[in-house]
Design a binder for these strands. Structure first.
Lengths: 176, 176
DNA sequence: AAGCGCATGTAAAGGGTTACATGATTGC
DNA sequence: GCAATCATGTAACCCTTTACATGCGCTT
């Protein structure tokens, strides 16, 4: 159910075509909610059927530009204000940690070092993005303010996992 | 693909029936990889077909106890040592944060307070679990050592989100 | 004219949730 | 005898991924 609201949320900011939404998903929302292009195009057609969005123009190569309707805007706002947050959490990374005891110590150390590097790379990526926004020449629109808040979550989340991976290296080494 | 390895990993520790595995998933792995009972029973039958596990006994009420086979044990170990970690991350909670600018300030504050409380409750839960393990009378088996490492990840992860939710309250308030 | 990027889709398969269904055993 | 818990499963539906398919427009 979240994909549709991700799309509606992006369209609340400005009109866009499926292709543009696909790219914006890739660049930003992807970190919190991955979506592939067939899924996006399918969902856009459904949203249009339900009158939550509408086609405003057709360009070259069959390009369709969508705009959110008042009905659609009301739907996102209702989702944000009234629906229960789904706290489902799935992580291959953490699932593996339950079974570290089945790994060769050398493999485990290698694994944890790679994990730490991965998480730190994410932290660096988000910090760089934040730095761009803190440049005084950068125009702070409301959507950009929100993006700033999301990026802060990303930095903190991945920093905590990087620290964990580092801690786990020491913790599992001591026990040998 | 991760579900099967979650089941194999649990069976590597000891024999169990589908019902027991279902309950153990609920208690522990659930936090990193939720699984419902129809999914578990279906997967167990597939694993048995592929000779990765085998039925060792049948009890009352059609109860079947499964044991991991050497083939199955090799499969989990290979998964742990050789397969790429899937870093896919999905979070309704973070997705919403992209669209905070669409919320009424009062609703946003309420939302962030509730999120903080939720994350803090998780932290408390995991810390309590860790405290149990740190009791000197507690026997530290290898699986329990790993569980300790996983719980540490849980504490750090949810603490970072709780801190973020608190930070976001201030950050979004200042801008009004 | 060839090749790349734009642009949208369909189809099949896999993974996951929810609802439905059934029946045995235990404890009161 | 009744209710709760044990115990396993099927069916339908939804969401997501991957592979396949098509064609336009721009640049070289």
């Amino acid at each position: 159910m979240s994909l549709r609201f991700g799309l509606l949320g992006l369209l609340a900011e400005s009109e866009a075509s499926g292709y543009e939404l696909s790219r914006r998903f890739q660049e930003t929302l992807h970190a919190a909610w991955p979506a592939s292009h067939p899924q996006i195009y399918t969902e856009l057609n459904k949203l249009a059927d339900e009158n939550l969005i509408e086609v405003t123009s057709r360009g070259p190569r069959g390009r369709k530009t969508y705009r959110i309707t008042p009905l659609g805007l009301a739907a996102v706002k209702k989702w944000l204000a009234q629906s229960k947050v789904d706290h489902t959490f799935r992580s291959d990374s953490l699932l593996r940690s339950f079974f570290f005891w089945l790994m060769e110590p050398a493999d485990l150390q290698k694994h944890l070092i790679a994990e730490q590097a991965f998480f730190e790379a994410r932290v660096a990526e988000y910090k760089e993005y934040i730095a761009l926004k803190e440049d005084p020449s950068y125009i702070m629109t409301p959507p950009n303010e929100s993006l700033r808040v999301t990026l802060e979550a990303g930095v903190r989340l991945y920093q905590s996992l990087a620290d964990w991976a580092e801690w786990a290296q020491k913790h599992t080494k001591d026990d040998l």
